[in-house]
């Protein structure tokens, strides 16, 4: 097994996650896709950690997870608030920022 194998897997999962963010309309699913992308990054970190004989990659995974948890909590709270106000969680219909 080489490092490249893990990196390739990570790239593929990252791409899939990105596709999800780009093409889905449901904000919750978009969020899930984001989590998927973060997971892909975590695979990267773990792989480098192993092949460079270092521990900090794994420590970083924990930090990423902490941030992901925080993000999920706040993001989902935002989605709830949004749903309360707009009766929708469709990204197409949420365009407060339209210029």
């Amino acid at each position: 097994m080489t490092l490249q194998h893990y990196l390739a897997l990570s790239a593929i999962i990252f791409g899939i996650g990105m596709t999800g963010v780009l093409v889905r309309r449901n904000l919750i699913v978009m969020f899930m896709s984001l989590e998927l992308m973060l997971n892909a990054v975590n695979i990267n970190l773990a792989a480098f950690s192993k092949y460079l004989h270092a521990m900090n990659g794994q420590v970083f995974i924990v930090f990423v997870m902490a941030v992901a948890a925080a993000e999920a909590a706040v993001g989902l709270a935002l989605i709830i608030t949004l749903f309360k106000n707009k009766e929708t969680i469709n990204a197409d219909e949420v365009n407060f920022f339209k210029g």
Binding site: V23, R24, R25, N26, I28, F31, M32, A72, A73, L76, I79, I80, F83, T88, I89, N90, A91, D92
Partner: peptide
Amino acid sequence: LYLFVVMLLNPKSHGFIK
């Protein structure tokens, strides 16, 4: 948490962007 939110909101099913 995700499942909770999904079930809490029970949004209409939205597919892919139109």
